[in-house]
Amino acid sequence: MPDNLSLYIERDSPLQRLNPLTKLAISFSLILIGFLGPGYWLATLLFICVLVPLSIWGKIGPEFLQRTVRLILPLALFLFVMQSLFYPGGRTVLWRFWIFSVKLEGVQFAYLTATRLMNMVGAFLLLLLSTHPSTLMTDLTRRGVSPSLTYILVSTLQIIPQMRNKANTIIDAQRSRGLETQGSVRARIGALLPLVGPLVFGSLVDVEERAIALEARAFKAKRVKTSLIHVPDSVRQRQVRIGLVVLTLVMIGIRLWPL
C-alpha cells in the first residue's frame, strides 16, 4: 500500500523543475480556456497540441495518457450513450433502431463535453504528476498562503492511507467479535457503526497527540518560517504566468461580451 496519496512521478525533466505556480497557472488557464473558449475543436486541440507535448517534455507521457484515459473513458461512454439518445431538441437523426434514435446534436454535445472534461482532467493530472505536493506547498507558503492550510492539505494526503490501514484492522477486530460484515443490506448497515465508531473515536485520541507533537516542533511559533527546499523561479516564468492570466482574461472577456 502506498504511504501517501501523492501522484507525483519522480523524473528529471524541465517540466518537473518548473516553478509549481507556473504549472498551476498552465493548468488553470488550460481548463478555463477549454471551457470558455470558442470553437468545437478547441478542447481537443488543447489536449493534443499542448497537454500531450507538455507531458512528453516532462517524461511522463505514457503515465499521463494512461491515467487520463482510465479516468475519462467511462465518463465519456456514459455521456455519448445518454446524450446521443436523449439530447433534448435533437432533430438530425443519424441512425435508428427499435424505439431509439441517435441524433447528431446529441453526439456533438457529448463530444464537446467529453473533450472539455478530458482537457480538465488532463490539466490537473499534468500538474499532479509533475509536481511534488511538498514543493507546491512550500512555494505557496512562501507566497503567503497560510501554513495551517497547506499543512491540512499535505497531511491529508498522508493520513488517509494511515486511516485506511486502521479501518482494515477495525473491521478485523469486529468480525472477530462475531460481527457479520457480509450478506444482506441490513447486516451491512448494522455493521457500519462498529466500524466507523472506533475510527472516529480513535482519531479524536490521535488528534490531541498530533497537536502536542506539532507544538513540540514549534509549528505555532510566531516567527518567519524558512524552508529547506529552495523552489526556483525565474523572471521568464513570471512573464509566462502573466501572459497566461491575460490570455485567460481575454477569453473570459470574449465569452461575456461577444464581438
Binding site: 486502521k166 484492522t169 477495525i170 478485523d172 477486530a173 469486529q174 472477530s176 467479535r177 457503526l193 462498529p194 466507523v196 465508531g197 472506533p198 473515536f201 480513535g202 485520541v205
Partner: peptide, 10 residues
C-alpha cells in the same frame, strides 16, 4: 487485538 481503540464504540 493489541490496540483496544480498534474495537471500542459503545
Amino acid at each position: 487485538f493489541q490496540n483496544p481503540d480498534d474495537q471500542l464504540f459503545k
